[in-house]
Nucleic acid binder design. Structure first.
Lengths: 171, 171
DNA sequence: TTTTTTGAATAGTGTACAGTATTCTAAAAA
DNA sequence: TTTTTAGAATACTGTACACTATTCAAAAAA
């Protein structure tokens, strides 16, 4: 039973493994192994982004209406070592779409140019304001008329922490 | 020169490696190796979240003012296999903090209960609306008085795709 | 002939092991 | 004595290798 010479074409077919492609052993620090496994199992958190002009029907991975595949971390965080989050408080920036309780993504490697929304420490309190250049100097302005602009000078102790690049709002 | 017996206490000290902790080889699909390396190099995108009541001074990892370490993906996406993104269009939901161009995180494993903001396909167009239960039935309501509520029934072809859990707004 | 069996063939997977890097100390040299 | 140095000690790291899983087809059986 069953013997003899070559068996051309025999063998396990390619792409039958867990990942349907070749793998290589990579050393992972023990504390990150479960995280990396999860990261792999969700394919690096790349999820479909649909345009809102998509036609009806149930969305599926095979859908042609997918605008692109998106990883939120990569999309929102361009400089991971220079980025941090701040939880917003107050309603001084609702005009910029920032509500109390939102998480702000702040990049401190970006230059705080006029027009940008920045995080600044004013007299020991973190605040979100828009940087504004006028003929009288640089100001921090709220996007809400009830708040007065604050002039940036050497007298008041203002430190700009970084530039707000996006806002995460829970509905 | 240099010979003889034991050298107690000799040897390379622990925690001198790239990751300062023991590692284990894990097989990674080839296409994901660079992604996983990057993921490791940024420690899984866990970045500090500061409370806005933090005191002045420059934020540093050693800071005591850190509320927690956060991974946006994990924070915003509870069911990766059931989650997708939709780019919002129009101003019908500004009241809920949703602006045109925002990226909506949509979880279709959550039950679309009344009060929740949902993504629905109405006559072949994706829209964001709040689900509302009245004595006259279920409605999709905009958070903007200029839009009329839409009744959900068998006549109009309405499919609810999922529940919006959060909104990402670029400033 | 058709069906079944069994070893060949080949891909997938985990880990042992060899080689490298680093530090320490006893012995040799100064 | 102090300084230098060769080898001992030990952790880090990549990958070769052994083992497993799967499929195929020639030979055996029906």
């Amino acid at each position: 039973m069953g013997s003899g010479g070559a068996r051309k074409g025999a063998g396990r077919p390619k792409g039958q493994g867990k990942y349907k492609e070749p793998t290589k052993p990579v050393r992972i620090p023990e504390s990150m192994i479960t995280d990396v496994m999860k990261y792999l199992s969700v394919k690096g958190y790349r999820l479909p982004l649909y345009a809102s002009t998509v036609q009806a029907g149930f969305p599926s991975p095979a859908d042609d209406y997918i605008e692109e595949q998106l990883d939120l971390n990569k999309h929102l965080i361009k400089h991971p070592t220079a980025t941090f989050f701040v939880r917003a408080a107050g309603d001084s920036m609702v005009g910029a779409g920032i509500h109390s309780g939102d998480i702000l993504v702040v990049d401190r490697s970006l230059e705080p140019k006029p027009g940008k929304v920045v995080i600044a420490a004013i007299d020991g309190q973190l605040t979100v304001k828009r940087l504004s250049q006028t003929s009288k100097g640089l100001y921090l302005k709220a996007e809400n008329d009830q708040y007065k602009p604050i002039k940036i000078n050497e007298i008041n102790d203002i430190i700009i922490w970084g530039v707000v690049t996006s806002v995460v709002h829970k509905v």
